[in-house]
């Protein structure tokens, strides 16, 4: 019996000298896994055109009805994305979204990607609705901002043949 007490106290003493496991969260962040699903981003092609073509397949796939998409027509004078249409309104309610990634799977152009930001707290429900301006990534270095003026007949396909159209 006495030996067991010594053994137990020894375990306590051993843990006393172990390094602490606590992650000092706001200063120090534990890296998430590569496939972690956090806040969404709307991606762009290398030339700056938006990948989203406003097809609403993400909204149809969403089990929580968190996504709202409204599409408008592209013209060659004001081109946002390849093909006929682009998303003029794109809203995700972060408080509805369950971060399942079905929108990512449904997207035909890989426009919407769930990235690694999980710090989403809001003072009111209205501020949880992320608009297209908040979701879309910055224009790449070699790209131009949208809407672009392009020569006619180049970007006729919604899903381009090549990965990054020139």
């Amino acid at each position: 019996m006495f030996g067991e007490i010594i053994k137990g106290l020894g375990t306590t003493l051993k843990h006393l000298f172990m390094p602490p496991v606590t992650i000092q969260y706001p200063e120090q962040k534990r890296p998430v896994r590569t496939r972690f699903k956090g806040r969404h981003e709307l991606k762009r092609y290398d030339n700056g055109l938006e990948r989203c073509i406003g097809c609403s397949l993400c909204a149809a796939a969403c089990p929580a009805d968190a996504i709202f998409v409204e599409a408008s027509e592209n013209t060659d004078e004001a081109r946002y994305s390849p093909g006929e249409r682009y998303a003029s309104t794109y809203e995700i309610n972060m408080l509805r979204c369950i971060f399942c990634g079905y929108c990512e799977d449904a997207c035909p152009t890989q426009a919407i990607v769930l990235e690694h930001n999980y710090e989403l707290s809001f003072y009111d429900r209205a501020s949880a609705i992320y608009t297209k301006e908040m979701l879309i990534v910055d224009v790449p270095v070699n790209g131009r901002a949208t809407p672009q003026v392009v020569e006619p007949g180049v970007f006729t396909r919604s899903i381009p043949d090549m990965e990054n159209p020139k």
């Binding site: 408080l95 979204c97 999980y118 809001f122 003072y123």
Partner: peptide, 21 residues
């Protein structure tokens, strides 16, 4: 409600972020 924390469920860090908010 004072603060809403998004996530399904939120990570422990996300909750701590909500508490700091």
């Amino acid at each position: 409600v004072d603060v809403y924390v998004a996530g399904c469920p939120p990570r422990p860090e996300a909750l701590i972020n909500g508490i700091m908010t």
